[in-house]
Design a protein around this nucleic acid. Structure first.
Length: 239
DNA sequence: TCATTAAATTGTT
DNA sequence: AACAATTTAATGA
């Protein structure tokens, strides 16, 4: 899967957000009307094709990103060390605040696994909202806290180095209701895409999914997975 | 809206 | 990696 575009042209095709898209953004509702206007007028939506890169390791921070529709992955390919996918990035996700806060270069790549609708809030607006809006601060803080919990869980599972558990954790992470409110009970992801996210072959993912389905944690659907017991999926271990 | 066809996805070897 | 079976998406009457 090669990137079909160069560094930034994704945002040259950017457009204002539709009403439906705006209503899908959870933190907008808690802003004052003035702050909301500020955010809405500076935000841009764009369609990323499969393989498009939204941000690259080492590039200066430009936007706070949101996913309206589709699927992205966060990884460290083409950096020193082995390629590792940190997580899949499903609809409802907002990310990049850590990099923006420190005004440091991105530490990961974000790439579209399939055609996706993404939103960018410029870094300047991001900081203005941080300086003026208590509600916005609360959202960002909660976001950072929830994600910290996810990464701790990730380290825990990776120590076990069990592939079934990696699939379970990767799935459970993307079903996180606070971080990814756009997902719901059914995550739209193909087994091929899940393979990219957890770093396994499609065949291996297929076997792991069947195992998870047998013990009643998920139901495999065409082009997606339905979660039946998120708590058990999170804590899944072999044996 | 329905039938037909093409494309995508899955399950299996 | 390749294959067949199944599901969805697209097309046009």
């Amino acid at each position: 899967m090669t990137a079909s575009n160069m560094s930034v042209p994704l945002w040259q095709r950017a457009r204002p957000l539709s009403e439906a898209e705006l209503s899908d953004i959870p933190w907008l509702a808690s802003l004052s009307s003035q702050e909301k206007g500020q955010a809405v007028s500076s935000m841009r939506a764009a369609t990323a094709q499969a393989g498009d890169v939204l941000c690259r390791i080492g590039k200066p921070p430009t936007y706070w990103f949101g996913v309206i529709d589709g699927l992205l992955k966060m990884s460290n390919d083409n950096s020193a060390g082995p390629p590792i996918t940190f997580t899949g990035v499903p609809p409802g996700a907002w990310f990049g605040e850590g990099t923006l806060l420190k005004r440091e270069p991105y530490r990961y790549n974000i790439q579209a696994l399939r055609r996706s609708t993404v939103v960018g809030l410029p870094i300047d607006t991001f900081h203005e909202l941080l300086d003026t809006s208590l509600a916005f601060n609360r959202f960002v803080l909660r976001q950072l806290n929830e994600r910290l919990g996810q990464f701790i869980a990730a380290v825990e599972i990776d120590r076990l180095n069990d592939t079934d558990s990696r699939v379970a954790r990767g799935l459970a992470a993307m079903f996180h209701p606070e971080l990814y409110p756009g997902v719901g009970q059914v995550l739209r992801i193909t087994q091929q895409e899940l393979g990219y996210v957890v770093g396994l072959s499609r065949q291996r993912v297929n076997e792991a999914l069947k195992g998870l389905q047998d013990i009643g944690l998920i139901r495999i659907e065409y082009g997606g997975v339905r979660v039946l017991d998120l708590e058990m999926l999170r804590n899944h271990r072999v044996g």
